[in-house]
Design a protein around this nucleic acid. Structure first.
Length: 229
DNA sequence: AAGTACCC
DNA sequence: CAAA
């Protein structure tokens, strides 16, 4: 039985070993934020750890170039994306799903070890994620409210890592039409969506282009780690 | 239906 | 810009 995120946080305060694990993974602060009544655990990555992650993403972007999927109904997403791991998120007129290779045909690159270490440090779950979705938000990109519900087991949390420009994150409830709240996510924020929040509707209204200098050309990268199968 | 419109 |  994996530890719940809240128990993990308690251990953060009481266990010297766990604190060292956090430092090793570049985490310099942890907090609990409340949005829509959900308690969301958030870690914050040191600038050096953020820069190291960006370097780890370069080979992924080279091997598996960004693309903007179509969605059922005929639209096209403004976010550009790719994935690492055994599965990547994909969408076209036929629907949303996970696929085991880039749409151009090559297998997805492996998830970088530092990303897996970060997952282990913030979730404490026994299983590694098999999908690392990389979403790139340019100046006009946004993402409508949606649920992450194409995974086999919702007891695993979803981890979101924000890099680059600030993003206005909106979270609602587990049903459409409920009230929503927003929160700005900044570069280095690592959000764990588990428990009650796992099936909450969420999206990104807009980014604050140019607010960070992490990415020389601007924009926001969000890494989403999930156990898919 | 992660698109849009509208709203918060 | 996360309140009330």
């Amino acid at each position: 039985m994996p530890l719940q995120a809240s128990e993990r946080m308690v251990k953060c305060d009481s266990s010297r070993f766990f604190a060292w694990e956090l430092v090793k993974n570049g985490i310099i602060a942890m907090s609990v934020l409340r949005i829509r009544g959900f308690e969301i655990h958030k870690a914050y990555l040191a600038a050096e750890a953020q820069r190291a992650l960006i370097e780890d993403l370069r080979p992924i972007l080279k091997a598996a170039p960004l693309f903007s999927p179509s969605v059922p109904g005929g639209g096209q997403m403004s976010v550009r994306m790719t994935s690492a791991g055994g599965f990547g998120w994909f969408s076209d007129a036929a629907g949303y799903r996970y696929i085991d290779r880039h749409p151009k045909g090559r297998a997805w690159p492996a998830i970088p070890a530092p990303v897996l270490n970060l997952w282990r440090a913030v979730t404490g779950v026994q299983r590694d994620p098999d999908c690392c979705l990389l979403n790139y938000y340019g100046q006009e990109a946004k993402m409508g409210l949606h649920q992450d519900k194409d995974e086999a087991d919702f007891s695993y949390p979803v981890v979101s890592i924000s890099l680059g420009d600030d993003g206005l994150f909106r979270m609602g409830e587990s049903r459409r039409g409920g009230k929503t709240d927003t929160i700005w996510l900044n570069s280095g924020d690592v959000v764990v969506m588990g428990g009650e929040a796992r099936l909450a509707y969420h999206g990104v209204d807009r980014i604050r282009f140019g607010s960070s200098r992490l990415l020389p050309k601007g924009g926001r990268i969000n890494l989403t780690l999930r156990v898919v199968t």
